[in-house]
């Protein structure tokens, strides 16, 4: 493999890792606050649809993004209603949200566009343009580093950079602010937070809403950045891979970046090479597809260090009277 090919694979790694990363950080906020969310997939999907649909209708990718964020946050609030207010089963609520999004998107798409559950292809202002970082052109001829900067770092849509910036931001919010401390506390020992006179419900709703916003970004990027329009089931299990990455990262932001880049790389390689030939031994593409899931099971099995989730995860908080 020559250097140019390597850069291409890494370039698509970054693109493919971005939705995973945004969804993974979304799950991070929610689960750190004690609300398990397996509805990441559904929220991404609905955001992908509404972003693409509104962008197609108005020609503005920004309005599309707004619609995507709103739709995703609404689903988040449904999840909050079920799991925080009515103390329902968070897993079941997440499953319901995934199906709700899978059904509604196709239903509405068929009604609005009549193209069998997809939106028209986005053109021009309906898609995120690629941003060329400063000096990318001038630095391109520099050996090794030039192409690295011009091909790999430069030339992505704005949401890729937003996703990357979210990593330090998430770290800062969670570990360097009062809000973050309380948010983490509410996922470990909600009774302590309650005793301190801080609203458990309020904090958990805040976390769930942030989760919705980040999922909205992820879905929006999928339909208006990575691809040009919505197709049915376009998230294709990315919400679950993000969940896997979250466990892989043991609920830490920087590790989440690493995990998502790894899973993005796996997707990029699977996309580029159908079957990988290793001198007589052929790795089928299906194995590459399944690898993120297999890795997650191995991690969960505790063979590579133990992944300990937030202690109060999945438990609705019942105030003592």
């Amino acid at each position: 493999m020559d250097y140019a090919t390597l850069l291409q694979v890494l370039d698509s790694t970054v693109r493919l890792a971005t939705p995973l990363l945004l969804a993974c950080l979304a799950g991070l906020f929610s689960e750190r606050a004690g609300v398990i969310d397996i509805g990441l997939e559904g929220k991404m999907l609905i955001a992908a649809f509404f972003s693409a649909a509104i962008a197609a209708a108005t020609g503005s990718v920004w309005l599309g993004l707004l619609a995507g964020l709103v739709s995703s946050v609404i689903l988040s609030l449904v999840h909050g209603l079920a799991s925080i207010t009515f103390r329902g089963n968070q897993l079941i609520s997440g499953v319901a949200i995934n199906f709700l999004a899978a059904g509604l998107t196709v239903l509405i798409a068929q009604d609005w566009f009549g193209q069998g559950g997809r939106t028209p292809s986005l053109v021009g202002g309906g898609r995120w343009g690629d941003i060329t970082l400063p000096f990318a052109e001038t630095l391109a001829p520099v050996p090794i580093l030039g192409p690295f900067y011009a091909e790999l770092l430069s030339g992505h849509s704005i949401l890729v950079y937003v996703g990357l910036l979210m990593v330090p931001l998430t770290w800062w919010v969670l570990f360097r602010t009062r809000f973050g401390l309380r948010l983490r506390a509410v996922g470990e020992a909600p009774e302590a937070v309650d005793t301190a006179g801080v609203s458990v419900t309020g904090l958990r709703y805040a976390a769930v809403a942030i989760c919705g916003l980040l999922c909205g970004l992820a879905g929006s990027y999928l339909a208006t950045g990575l691809q040009a329009g919505f197709v049915r089931e376009m998230t294709a299990g990315r919400g679950y891979i993000a969940l896997a990455a979250l466990i892989f990262a043991k609920w830490r932001p920087w590790h989440a970046l690493g995990a998502c880049l790894l899973f993005g790389l796996l997707q990029a390689v699977a996309l580029r090479y159908q079957n990988i030939d290793l001198g007589g031994l052929t790795i089928p593409v299906q194995l590459m597809d399944a690898l993120p899931y297999i890795l997650t099971v191995v991690i969960l099995a505790g063979f590579v260090g133990k992944a300990i989730p937030p202690r109060a995860g999945g438990e609705p908080y019942v105030k003592e009277r």
Binding site: L81, F86, L100, A102, V106, L107, Q110
Partner: peptide, 20 residues
């Protein structure tokens, strides 16, 4: 996909929003 929506609503109401 209407069925998927109905299925989701049934799961939501009988499972997650049971207390409601």
């Amino acid at each position: 996909e209407l069925i998927v929506v109905i299925q989701a609503l049934v799961i939501l109401f009988t499972g997650a929003l049971d207390n409601m």
